[in-house]
Design a protein around this nucleic acid. Structure first.
Lengths: 309, 309
DNA sequence: GTTAGTGTTGCGTTTTACGCAACACTACTC
DNA sequence: GAGTAGTGTTGCGTAAAACGCAACACTAAC
C-alpha cells in the first residue's frame, strides 16, 4: 500500500517520514530509488514552510528535533487513518458483483484478454465475465444493439450506442518461423518480398478491405497457394509448422513470439496502414460498475499495446 | 493554515476534500482559483488509483459514493492530526528566544532591514535583534571575529568564519529629484552625463575601489564640487532638496522612491559593475536557532532584491 | 592527512499540475 | 422540441514542481 503512489500523501510527507525512520537522507533516497538531493530539498522546503527545523544536522546520523518528533507522531496518526481508508475502499470494491458480457475477436482473446482477466479477477473475484469470440463487425454490432457490454475488435466506427474507450495501432506483418528467409530482410519485408511465399490471411484482414488487396495488386505480388481462415489458433499452428506465411498483427501470437517459436516481422509497406484494435463499450450510463471496471482494465491494456508506428 | 501550501497534504487530497465539501468540481475550482479541468483530473486520477469511484456523476450535483464517504471521513481524521502537528510546531517556535547580533551598512538599515524585522518579530516576538550600523569592511570583520552573528554589507569576501548566505546584485546609479535633467536621458545616464553635476558619493562606494574611480577618470568626467559622506540619511535628504546628485544603489532610498520624491536612475555604464549586497554569517554550527531564523528571513529578502542586471 | 560516509547546492531535465477551449451531458424553461 | 444555464470531461500546450547529475562542504574514524 503505497500511499504516496495513490496520491494520498504528499512528496514532502513521504520523504520526511522515511528519512525520520531510516535516520538518513541518503538511506531514504536509496529506498525511494532517487538521489539524495531530491529528498534533501523536499525536507528543507517543508522546514522552511513550517519555519522549524525537523532534524538536527551535524554528525553522521540525523536526529529529529522536537518539532520533527512532534510532526512524525502526528503524521503517523494521520497515515494510519489513510491506511484505514484505502483498506475500507478495497473491501467495498471486493463486494462488487455482477456479470459483464464481452465479445472479442479471436486474436485478442488469446494473450491479451487472459492476461487482463487474470489480474482483473484477482482484484474482483466476484465479477463474472462472459466472453464470446466473434468477428470484428459482429462484435461491434452486438454492443451497439445491447447484446454485449464491451467489444474488442479491429477498425470499427463508434456511433450513438457504441463508444470507443481505447485504441491501439498495430502494424500488419508476417509471422514466420525463426529460420525463414524473410527474417533476413532489413528493415523488414515489403509486400513484394512475399513473392513465392505461401501466404495465409486472417479473415479479419478483410476489414482492412481494399487497402491491403489494392496494395497487394499494386505490388504485383504473386502469392503461391493463398489461404484464409477464421481461426487464429490454426494460423499460428500452421506458421509454427512452417506450412505458410501468416499475415496478421502480432496480437494473439505473443506467447509464441516470446517463446521464440515464431518471429513477427512488421511489413515495411507504406501503403498498408495500421490495424486499429479498439475497445468499444455501451453508453456510459448503461454500463454497470463491474463493466466499467473491466472497461478500465482492458482500456489500459489496449493503450499499453501501442506504439506500433 | 493551508496544509496543502505547507506540503502536508497532496493535491489530490486537497481537491477531493474541497469538492466533497462544496458538492461541485467547478465550485472547488473557483475556491482554489484554478480551472475545473485540473480538479476533475486530479479526482479522476485518485479514483483510478484507488479503483473506486468517489462520486456519483449525473445530474447537476455531485454525490459522494460509498467509497467517497469512507475516504472523506478518514481524510478528515487525518487532516485533524496534521492540523495538530502544525499548531504544535508553531507553539514550539513561539517558545524560541534569544538575541541576535547584526551589523549592517546604513543603506540596508533603512527600508530593507526594518521591513524584514517587522515580519520577523511578528512571528518571533521573543527574539531580540541588536543592530549596529557600520561600514561594509567593519561589518564583515565583526562577524569573522565572532563579535556579531550576521552582517549586511557590500562586496565582502567570504572566509573560514564568514559564510555568504545570500547576495543581490544592485546597479549603481544616481538619485535625483523628479525634475532633474538626468531623468530625460535614455536608456539612462552614463558617467559622462554627470558633467557639470554636483555629485555626492557614499563612503561605501569606496569598496568598489578602483573600478568606479578608474571609470570616472576614463570618462573624463568633470564633477563640480564633489562631496562624500558616510550618512545615507544625509545624502538622501540632500538629494531630495536638490543639493546634489547622489551616487549609490537604490538600497536605502526605497521609501523616497516609492513616494516619488526621488528618482533612481541606474547608470548606463558598462565599466561599472554591480554592487553586491551580501548577507554574511558565522559558521553554521555557531549560529543559534534564532540567528538561523533571522538569517533565513534576511536571506530571502536579499535574494528578492535581484535582479538588477 | 586520508578515507568514507553524510547533507547540500547550482544547474539542467523530466514529470506533474495546470490552463484554454471546446465538448458532452443534464435539468429546467418556454 | 429548442434554447439556456449549469455541470463534468478531454485534447493539447504551458508552467511549476520534482528530480538527477555532479560537485561541494562537512564530520568521524583511522
Amino acid at each position: 500500500m503505497d500511499l504516496h503512489r495513490l496520491g494520498l500523501i504528499s512528496t514532502r510527507v513521504q520523504h520526511f517520514q522515511l528519512t525520520a525512520r531510516l535516520g538518513s537522507i541518503r538511506a531514504a533516497a536509496r529506498a525511494l530509488n532517487m538521489t539524495p538531493s531530491s529528498v534533501s530539498r523536499s525536507i528543507r522546503a517543508l522546514e522552511d514552510d513550517l519555519r522549524a527545523p525537523l532534524f538536527e544536522r551535524g554528525g553522521q546520523q540525523l536526529r529529529l528535533s522536537s518539532a520533527g518528533e512532534m510532526l512524525l507522531y502526528h503524521l503517523g496518526q494521520s497515515t494510519v487513518e489513510l491506511g484505514r481508508a484505502v483498506t475500507g475502499i478495497a473491501d467495498l470494491r471486493g463486494l462488487r458483483r455482477g456479470t459483464v458480457t464481452l465479445v472479442s475477436i479471436e486474436s485478442a482473446a488469446r494473450g491479451l484478454l487472459p492476461r487482463v482477466l487474470a489480474d482483473f479477477w484477482a482484484r474482483n473475484p466476484e465479477i463474472a465475465v462472459d466472453v464470446r469470440v466473434t468477428s470484428s463487425a459482429d462484435a461491434a454490432s452486438m454492443v451497439a444493439s445491447g447484446d454485449a457490454d464491451l467489444a474488442l475488435s479491429f477498425d470499427q466506427q463508434s456511433s450513438r450506442n457504441l463508444r470507443r474507450i481505447a485504441m491501439a495501432g498495430l502494424a500488419l506483418g508476417v509471422l514466420v518461423p525463426p529460420g525463414s528467409r524473410l527474417t533476413k530482410i532489413t528493415p523488414g519485408p515489403a509486400l513484394s518480398d512475399l513473392s513465392g511465399e505461401r501466404v495465409i490471411l486472417s479473415d479479419s484482414s478483410l476489414t482492412l478491405g481494399r487497402s491491403v488487396e489494392a496494395a497487394m495488386g499494386d505490388a504485383f505480388v504473386d502469392f503461391a497457394r493463398r489461404g484464409r481462415t477464421n481461426s487464429i489458433a490454426l494460423m499460428i499452428e500452421l506458421a509454427e509448422l512452417g506450412l505458410g506465411t501468416v499475415m496478421q498483427t502480432r496480437l494473439g501470437a505473443e506467447r509464441e513470439i516470446a517463446a521464440g517459436s515464431l518471429v513477427f516481422l512488421p511489413l515495411h509497406e507504406r501503403r498498408i496502414g495500421l490495424r486499429r484494435l479498439m475497445l468499444m463499450a455501451r453508453p456510459k450510463a448503461e454500463l454497470s460498475e463491474a463493466a466499467t471496471a473491466l472497461s478500465a482494465a482492458l482500456g489500459q491494456a489496449v493503450d499499453a499495446l501501442s506504439p506500433d508506428e
